[in-house]
Amino acid sequence: MSHFFVFLHVVTAILFIGPVAVTTSMFAPTYRKAKGGDAGAAGQLRLLHRISRLYGMISLVVPVLGLILLFGFGEGKGEYGFHIATLLSIIAWAVLLFLVIPSQRRGLVAANALEAGDNPFTDEAAKARTNTTKLPGQLAMFAGIFNLLWFVTAILMFV
């Protein structure tokens, strides 16, 4: 039974974390294009944000399956690499939820990439328009932290 959960854990990591890693990395360059006047970039920003948000929420399955393996089946109980990897995956998910996705939302507002009626938060819109100079760097930095945490997690799983 534990082999089935290991299989699910690995497959969900590939299918759900992979797209999030790619879309979070693509958001900052696409944001720069949208702010530079590229008309198609606004639609790309919406799509990248939607994928990051949806797959990011679904990717919570990966650390949950890891915890089930760790505590339910005792897989790797004596190996501290698994404990650290599980902790890092939870931290990575929190970085995505609390830093990456809100920064992307501010980027959408700042690039006027939201459609009418899609932004009920006028305070957020005003805040995003006033502080957009650091936003591309923050978007890239948060995506890099998220991806680095997952990279280290993957290494710890196989060491």
Rank of each mutant, 00 (worst) to 15 (best):
P136Y: 13
K33D: 13
I155S: 12
G78I: 06
T130S: 10
M157F: 10
L87A: 15
D38S: 07
N119W: 00
P120K: 01
Q44A: 14
G78Y: 13
M1Q: 14
Q138I: 04
E124V: 05
I84V: 15
L99Y: 03
G81N: 08
P120Y: 11
V6C: 14
G66P: 06
L60Q: 03
L96M: 05
V109R: 15
P19D: 03
I17D: 11
R46F: 02
L87R: 05
I58L: 08
P120S: 05
I91E: 08
R53T: 14
F151Y: 04
V152K: 01
T86K: 05
A92L: 08
A110M: 12
Q104S: 10
P63K: 11
S2T: 15
A42K: 02
F146Q: 08
F4K: 08
A113R: 05
L87E: 01
M1A: 15
N147K: 11
D118N: 14
K77A: 02
P29T: 11
A85N: 04
I155K: 11
T24W: 13
V100M: 04
V62F: 09
A85Y: 01
A111L: 01
I101T: 13
F146G: 12
V64I: 11
G56C: 01
F73S: 00
Y80E: 15
G137L: 14
G76F: 09
R32W: 08
F71K: 01
H83T: 11
D118W: 14
D123M: 00
G36D: 05
A154K: 05
A94S: 11
R53K: 14
R106L: 10
T12G: 12
N147G: 07
A21E: 09
T12R: 00
G144Q: 00
A116I: 09
G81S: 09
E124M: 09
V61K: 02
S25G: 11
P136D: 03
A128M: 12
F151S: 09
A111M: 05
V95D: 09
N112E: 05
I145G: 02
Y55M: 12
A116K: 15
V61I: 03
A85P: 02
T12P: 01
G66T: 04
W150M: 04
T153Q: 10
T133E: 05
M57R: 09
Y80V: 15
M157T: 06
T153I: 05
T24G: 09
G74D: 04
F98N: 02
F16H: 07
F98M: 12
P102H: 02
L114K: 13
S25V: 07
S89N: 01
G72D: 13
N131H: 03
V61C: 03
G74M: 08
E75M: 13
I17F: 09
K127S: 14
P29S: 12
R53D: 13
T130Q: 13
G74C: 01
L47Y: 08
I14R: 07
L60H: 03
W150V: 08
I91A: 05
E75V: 12
I101C: 04
P19R: 00
Q44W: 05
L156F: 02
G117K: 04
Y80N: 15
V6A: 14
M1F: 10
A111G: 03
V20W: 04
F27A: 00
K33Q: 11
L97D: 03
N131K: 01
S59I: 00
L15M: 12
L114H: 09
G78Q: 03
F121Y: 15
